[in-house]
Simulated scan of single mutants.
Amino acid sequence: MQIESIVTIKKELKHLSKDELLDLCLKLGKFKKENKAFLTYLLFQSDDENAYIESVKTTLDELFEGINSRNYFFMKKTIRKILRQIKIYSKYSSEKSTEVELLLYFCERIEKLRPSIFDNNTLTNLYDRQVAMIEKKISVLHEDLQFDYNQKLESLKGYGY
């Protein structure tokens, strides 16, 4: 099967009726959990980005509470799972600051974990990569946002060393 371009799909969608479009959206939502989550974001949460960020933070809090901290192997697995969720939630939003906000929150939460992630090289490297990624993403934002986020980022740098 050849996948058509967005332009071709857009042209084809213009020829469909309202009911046919509704049916296609519902089928898309049933097909995959991510599609359903994205439709939920577009329909209910895209107009209030701050509320969306807070709801994602609440979800992340629940995931952090479920971390098995008895050994680093299980901590690594769960932390990577949380990071994948952040990437998915960030992908839904059209605002670049959303991902920065969620990654900063992730780093703040990961610092507070016990036993400390800084006693494990793999988790320390993961943390450092996220801080570097945040720096890169901050550099493309508006200057006012850069200033605010850089202040938060400076408080994260060098933590635990």
Rank of each mutant, 00 (worst) to 15 (best):
M1C: 11
M1A: 14
S5T: 14
V7M: 08
I9Q: 10
I9S: 08
K11R: 13
K11H: 10
E12Q: 11
L13K: 03
H15M: 13
L16G: 01
L16C: 10
D19H: 00
C25S: 14
G29I: 04
K30R: 12
K32F: 01
E34G: 07
E34Q: 15
N35P: 00
A37L: 15
F38S: 03
L39A: 11
L39V: 04
L39H: 00
T40H: 13
T40I: 09
Y41T: 03
Y41I: 02
L43W: 00
F44L: 14
F44N: 14
Q45C: 01
S46V: 09
D47R: 15
N50K: 13
N50D: 13
A51Y: 03
A51C: 06
I53H: 05
D61F: 09
E62Q: 15
L63R: 10
E65H: 08
E65Y: 00
F73K: 13
F74P: 00
K76D: 05
K77D: 14
T78V: 01
T78K: 14
I79K: 05
R80E: 07
R84I: 09
Q85A: 08
K87C: 00
Y89A: 13
S93P: 02
S94D: 10
K96Y: 05
T98L: 08
T98N: 05
E99G: 01
L102F: 11
F106H: 04
E108P: 04
I110T: 03
I110R: 02
E111C: 09
E111L: 12
K112A: 15
L113S: 07
R114W: 10
P115R: 07
F118L: 03
F118N: 08
D119A: 14
R129S: 15
Q130D: 07
V131G: 09
V131D: 06
V131K: 01
A132V: 06
M133N: 11
M133T: 13
I134K: 01
I134L: 01
I134C: 02
K136W: 05
K136E: 12
V140W: 01
V140C: 12
E143H: 11
E143F: 12
Q146E: 15
D148V: 07
Y149A: 11
Y149C: 12
N150C: 10
K152Y: 12
S155V: 07
K157V: 09
K157Y: 03
Y159H: 06
G160T: 03
Y161R: 05
Y161T: 04
